[in-house]
Design a protein around this nucleic acid. Structure first.
Lengths: 335, 335
DNA sequence: AAAATGTATGTAAACGTTTACGGAACTTTT
DNA sequence: AAAAGTTCCGTAAACGTTTACATACATTTT
C-alpha cells in the first residue's frame, strides 16, 4: 500500500477529510475517540503530509535555496554548515544545489528554485556567470536574495563577503616584510570580483613598498588543483623564477606545493608560499601553510541570518545589507 | 508583481487556462498567434511553473533524495558528485541533506523526503542510527532505497559498498610485510558495520602472520579529526607505544599525523601510518600518505544507476542489488 | 417551552497545473 | 446542400491539504 493521503484515511474511517485534518493537527473540536482512530490509522499507514499540497495552499514553504559553485570544496561545505544550522534553528529547510561554475546550470537551478517557490535564495555566483538577468528577476518576484563570498554589484541582493582587497594587501605585505624580492601572484578567474580585489590589494602592497610587479609574475588559473598545479609548474620554470608566491586560495596553494615538490624546490627556503581561505588541512601540510583566513562557517551563519530577517520581515522594501568580514593573517611555516 | 500563475496569464489575455497550458507546451492545436501572445507574456512576467502543482498532479517528481552524514567530508562530497552527474543525465534532480550522524535528524529527513514524494532515496546511514524503522517503512511506501558506503543488513534496500574486510586485511598485511612489530588500529564507531569489517580484516591479517594484537592497541574514535587527534595522542603516549598504526580513515590518519608531529615522532621512521579512503590531499602531506583507496566518485555513480534503474522499472518486485567495490593499496611514503 | 450555548462534524472553495472530452466555427469533400 | 473533416478553444475534474462557514444534535439557561 503506497503513499496514503488524508482522503484515503477519511474513506477508511467513514468520516470527512476535514475531520481527519483536524484530528492530525490535534484541534480541540474533534472527539477524542475520533482523534485516536485517525492517529492510529495514520501511524499504521505511515501517513506523511504532502509538501506539494501544503506548498500549493500556503504562500510560504519555509525552505531556502542554496547555490554553491561546488560542494567538494571545504570552504563552501563549511559555509553550508553555518547556513544550515541557523536555518534549522528557525524552522527552515535548505535545498542545496551546485552550479559547477557552469552558467547554464546556474540559470536552471534558479528557475527550479523559483518553481519550487522557495522563500529565499542564497548564492555564491559561479565564475563563468557574466549575465545576471536570472538573479535580478528575483527582485520582481519578491524572492529575497543573498550573495556570499562571490557577489556582484550589478545584482540586487544582500552581500556577505570578505575584504578581499585587505586580504590581498596583507598577503603581499607579509611576503615583502619577509624579505622576498621576486614575488608572484597566481590569481583566480578574472571574471570574479574577489579575484580582482585580492590582486589589487596585493599590487597596492607592492606599490607601497616601491616594488615592481613583473608582468610574467601575474598569472590566472581556476580554483581547481589540477589547473593551479600546471600554472605553478610554468611559473616556476621561468628563466628567473619567483622566490615567493601569493596564491589566490589554499586549493591553488596546494597545486603550487605539489609543483614545488616535483621541481625539488624547498618551501620556504627556495620559495615562500601564502594561500587564502585557511583550510583545515593547512596545518598538516609540510610545511604548514601560511595563509589569510576566511571565516567560512560564520559567513554561512551571517548569510542565513540576513536572508531570514528579510524573509520574515513584512517590509516589502527591506534594505539591502552588506556584511564585510575582515581577513586575517595566519602565520605558519611556508613563508 | 510577484509569482505569476497560468491563471493570471489566462485572465490577462482573456483566454482559458487550458489554452495557456497548451501554448506553453507548444502543442499543435493552438493558433500560432495565441501561442506567441502567451509566450511573450509568460516571458515578460518571468513565469515559472509551480513544481508543487505539477508534483501534486503527476505521480512522479523526477527527484531523488540524498542523505549523507556530513557534507564537509571529501569522501561524501565526491560521492555526491558522482551521483548527481548520473542523475542529471537522466533528467532527475537531487535533494541533498546531511544527518550530522544524529538519529533524530535522519528520521526527520526521511519524513520530509516522503512528504516531498521523491521517486527514490540514497543514504549513507549515520553512525548513531540503531533503529531502522524509518528506512524499512520505505518498502511499504514503494519508495526505492539505496544505501552506499554505510549499509545495514536489517534494512531492505540496495547496497553499494566496499569490501571492507579485504581493505582491512590489506592494510594489516602491508604493515606486517614492512617489518613492523607493534601494530595498532584506530577503529571507527563500533556501531558501523564497516568499522567492524575493517577491524576483522586487520585482525585476520595479524592472525595469518601469527602475530598478536595487544588489547591496548585497539581503540575506537569518530571520523572527526579532533577526536582522532586526541585518541592518537593517548595511544602514542603508552609506556610501549606502537610502531605502526592502521587508521580507519584518512581523516583519522590526519589526526594521527598531527599527534605524531606534536610528539616529535618521525613518520615513517618512528611510526608507520596507513589510512583508508584516499583523499585528494593525501599525496600532499608530509610524508605522502599510504592508504587504501575507495572509489568514491564511482560509488556515487553506481548508486545513482542502480537506484534509477529501480525507479524506472515497472517491476514492483525489483530485485535488490549489492555492488561491492574492491579496495586497493596505494603505496606512498608513510609506511 | 423557547432560546441560547456547546460539541462534533460535514461542505466546499482554494492553491496551480494538466488533460480528456466536447463543441463551435470553419473548410473541404461528396 | 448535406456530410465529413479540420482547427482552435473552453469546461471540468483531478491531485492533497487547510479552513471559513454551515449544520445537526445535545445540553444548558431563561
Amino acid at each position: 500500500m503506497p503513499q496514503v493521503s488524508i482522503k484515503d484515511i477519511a474513506r477508511m474511517l467513514n468520516i470527512s477529510v476535514a475531520t481527519v485534518s483536524r484530528a492530525l493537527h490535534n484541534r480541540y473540536d474533534v472527539k477524542p475517540e475520533t482523534k485516536l482512530k485517525v492517529l492510529e490509522l495514520a501511524e499504521r499507514l505511515n501517513y506523511r503530509p504532502s509538501s506539494h499540497a501544503i506548498g500549493l495552499l500556503k504562500k510560504r514553504t519555509h525552505t531556502i535555496g542554496l547555490v554553491v559553485p561546488e560542494i567538494d570544496n571545504q570552504f563552501f561545505s563549511e559555509i553550508i554548515n553555518g547556513l544550515e544550522n541557523v536555518a534549522y534553528q528557525q524552522g527552515y529547510n535548505v535545498m542545496i544545489f551546485q552550479s559547477q561554475n557552469i552558467y547554464e546550470r546556474e540559470v536552471k537551478i534558479i528557475d527550479q528554485l523559483i518553481g519550487a517557490r522557495v522563500d529565499g535564495i542564497a548564492i555564491s555566483i559561479g565564475s563563468s556567470t557574466l549575465d545576471f538577468k536570472h538573479l535580478n528577476m528575483l527582485k520582481d518576484l519578491d524572492i529575497p536574495l543573498a550573495m556570499f563570498d562571490r557577489a556582484n554589484d550589478q545584482v540586487y541582493g544582500h552581500k556577505i563577503i570578505n575584504d578581499n582587497f585587505e586580504g590581498g594587501y596583507k598577503a603581499g605585505e607579509f611576503l615583502i616584510k619577509s624579505g622576498r624580492k621576486r614575488i608572484a601572484h597566481i590569481a583566480g578567474p578574472s571574471t570574479l570580483k574577489l579575484t580582482r580585489l585580492r590582486m589589487q590589494g596585493f599590487k597596492a602592497a607592492l606599490r607601497d613598498a616601491q616594488m615592481e610587479l613583473r608582468p610574467e609574475y601575474l598569472v590566472h588559473t581556476t580554483f581547481r588543483m589540477e589547473d593551479s598545479h600546471q600554472t605553478a609548474l610554468d611559473l616556476l620554470s621561468l628563466p628567473e623564477p619567483p622566490d615567493a608566491i601569493f596564491a589566490v586560495s589554499d586549493y591553488v596553494a596546494l597545486g603550487v606545493l605539489k609543483a614545488a615538490r616535483e621541481l625539488h624546490l624547498h618551501v620556504p627556503n627556495d620559495l615562500a608560499l601564502i594561500g587564502f581561505t585557511n583550510l583545515a588541512v593547512g596545518p598538516l601540510l609540510e610545511p604548514p601553510l601560511t595563509t589569510i583566513s576566511q571565516q567560512s562557517y560564520e559567513m554561512g551563519e551571517e548569510t542565513a541570518r540576513i536572508l531570514l530577517e528579510n524573509i520574515e520581515s513584512s517590509d516589502k522594501d527591506f534594505k539591502l545589507q552588506t556584511r564585510i568580514f575582515k581577513p586575517e593573517l595566519v602565520i605558519r611555516n611556508s613563508v
